[in-house]
């Protein structure tokens, strides 16, 4: 079974710097594998271990994603090889552009049985790219997938919807966006880390994918700012539990909420 797992490399949100005017800077942010994409990688690797075949990790973005530390981090989590499409034209790409580039890369990888994505990317978390990718590839595509069982050319999935669990059967190839609780991602061990350095990394350009021009953006980000903080009273209540409870109950009455 040939599996592709899509993982986004993005600046870490906890490194956001807020300037005094409310604008934000990501200049000093460290780039990482999206924390919700780790589950997709884990799911892909487990399926390969159970059914044989290979896992190709795929990531697209600006040039800075082509960094030895990121490459090693991805490969030490179990994929057999890595495909990177790293061009600055893809900096801040919208979901439509990203999905088109991923679709072209999946086609070039060829004979893919299953594509997995995370629940959402670390920076945007729009939960969109996997669905767009499936539709562009014109194959069955589902989100919120919390269990995957493969047999022959079929896959049985469980979807964790808001109020129900749904079990579906679909033909392969398919694109599945997995939930964050499908598996706990492994921590790479020493052996995997050493092995990672020897695994193949393919660097493809947009031209290699037959995309002579970068796909046209459909959405433009006009501003990015820190959320406006809401003014709060910030009354700290200390003391014994009884005292604190009495005091809080009094405030709640005064506020008219009880």
């Amino acid at each position: 079974m040939k599996i592709v797992v899509c993982a986004k490399l993005a600046p870490d949100a906890s490194d956001i710097e807020v300037r005094s005017d409310g604008s934000i800077s990501l200049e000093r942010a460290e780039w990482r594998i999206g924390s919700f994409d780790l589950q997709a990688i884990e799911a892909a690797v487990r399926l390969r271990d159970a059914h044989g075949g290979s896992v190709t990790a795929l990531s697209v973005g600006p040039q800075r994603i082509n960094h030895s530390k990121l490459r090693k981090d991805l490969l030490s989590r179990g994929p057999d090889e890595l495909v990177l499409v790293a061009e600055d034209a893809l900096n801040g790409a919208d979901t439509a552009v990203t999905a088109q580039v991923l679709a072209a890369a999946v086609r070039k990888i060829g004979a893919v049985d299953l594509v997995l994505t995370g629940e959402g990317s670390a920076d945007l978390y729009f939960q969109q790219v996997g669905l767009q990718l499936g539709e562009l590839l014109a194959v069955p595509v589902f989100n919120a997938v919390s269990k995957i069982e493969v047999s022959d050319s079929q896959v049985r999935i469980e979807r964790s919807l808001e109020e129900e669990t749904e079990v579906l059967e679909l033909p392969l190839p398919a694109v599945l966006a997995v939930t964050t609780d499908i598996h706990t991602p492994r921590l790479p061990n020493m052996k995997e880390i050493l092995l990672a350095a020897k695994k193949p990394v393919y660097e493809w350009s947009l031209a290699d994918l037959g995309l002579e021009n970068t796909p046209e953006p459909r959405v433009e980000a006009v501003s990015l700012r820190a959320p406006r903080p809401v003014e709060r009273k910030r009354i700290l209540i200390e003391g014994s539990p009884e005292e604190a409870a009495q005091s809080l109950a009094g405030y709640l009455v005064k506020e008219g909420v009880v």
Binding site: Y125, R218, L224, A226, P227
Partner: peptide, 13 residues
């Protein structure tokens, strides 16, 4: 975006 760490305004093109 950024898990609630930033507000983004987008314009569809």
């Amino acid at each position: 975006v950024f898990g609630g760490g930033a507000v983004r305004i987008d314009r569809p093109l």
